[in-house]
């Protein structure tokens, strides 16, 4: 129990650091931030200027601590300000529209890739030295390909040349989002290629990692002891080797969540998939600071939450974690 509490405190601290960075950075920019933005975009409406000023805290009475407190309160109410590129849309609205797409796509694909990759890794580790090892250099290559590049390749192959999958977007033209079959089937169809991209590139990484951990674990005394006990191979592999090897693998998953999410976001750009990634690139190109920061916060919080869930799973699986002080 104390393990979970310690982790919770840690994530709260991390969230707070993210919030504070978000707050401090714009105020560190030399010169008047508002003016530098205005000079880049001379054609914005005056209301947009006011929105930017509000976000940057210019013209607010009160000390910086007041502003900081106001900022924290805003975030607590999920008020991330007003978008300047999509004025007058609220950042939170835009986020709420885009977030489900990303979570469903990236979440599902990543979990599938992790499970399948780990299973393959268990086999590869157990049969170390055998046929599966010949695939390794290929897997390493696969793992080193940036998500978005792989997306480009797949798109080129399957969408442009072979016309098997759509060229992008989240759903077909002219469809209205809603809970009806037309829309859902179209959405699923459009998500297949992006999901495939994520699964194919990241599976290699999980497999390699699990394989290495398995090899190390198989060398442990308790696996030798399990064999000495004359247990069936299946029991040794799963209950003795894999069940212990899964722990560092899960920890690795927690660490990797940030990477995976980042990679997937960039990949969304290639597919023009209506998720957070696309929103992000639009925000960046149009220098929409409020939106950029809002996206950063949301992504960070999501990743922290995912990490917390992984920690829960680890505690559930590892009896030692429940007992020991987490000295991560």
């Amino acid at each position: 129990m104390s393990f979970i509490i310690r982790r919770l405190v840690f994530y709260v601290v991390a969230a707070w650091v993210a919030l504070t960075i978000n707050f401090i950075i714009p105020r560190l920019v030399p010169g008047n931030a508002v003016e530098s933005i205005m000079s880049k975009f001379p054609n914005l409406q005056p209301a947009a200027y006011r929105a930017i000023e509000a976000m940057l805290g210019v013209g607010h009475p009160g000390s910086i601590w007041h502003q900081y407190w106001a900022y924290l309160v805003d975030v607590a109410h999920l008020n991330f300000g007003t978008s300047s590129s999509e004025y007058p849309a609220q950042v939170s609205t835009l986020l709420a529209e885009a977030l489900p797409w990303t979570i469903v796509l990236v979440g599902t694909a990543t979990v599938i890739a992790f499970l399948v990759g780990t299973a393959l890794g268990i086999v590869a580790g157990w049969r170390h030295g055998g046929g599966l090892d010949r695939v390794l250099p290929g897997l390493m290559f696969l793992q080193a390909i940036p998500y978005f590049f792989f997306a480009l390749i797949l798109l080129e192959l399957f969408a442009v040349k072979l016309h098997v999958f759509p060229l992008g977007q989240g759903y077909g033209e002219g469809l209205i989002p809603g809970w009806h079959w037309d829309f859902i089937s179209s959405a699923v169809y459009h998500s297949l290629l992006p999901a495939l991209t994520i699964v194919l590139t990241s599976i290699a990484g999980w497999m390699l990692q699990m394989r290495n951990v398995m090899i190390t674990t198989i060398g442990e005394d308790y696996v030798v002891a399990a064999q000495a006990k004359g247990l069936a191979n299946r029991r040794v592999v799963f209950t003795y080797a894999a069940r212990n090897a899964i722990l560092p693998q899960l920890q690795g998953f927690g660490l990797a969540i940030g990477f995976v999410v980042s990679g997937a976001l960039v990949m969304e750009i290639v597919f023009s998939y209506p998720g957070i990634g696309l929103l992000l690139v639009n925000a960046v190109t149009s220098n929409d600071y409020a939106l950029t920061q809002g996206i950063f916060l949301v992504i960070t919080f999501t990743v922290l939450l995912a990490n917390l869930i992984v920690d829960f799973i680890i505690v559930f699986v590892d009896p030692r974690a429940r007992a020991r002080e987490a000295t991560r």
């Binding site: 991390a14 650091v17 950063f296 960070t300 990743v303």
Partner: peptide
Amino acid sequence: LSLVTNVFLVIPALPLLIVLLGYFP
């Protein structure tokens, strides 16, 4: 130091990079 290390480990790098770099002239 461990706390600082872990915090920066868990905060996703790419979005943070975008935020940091985004403000540089």
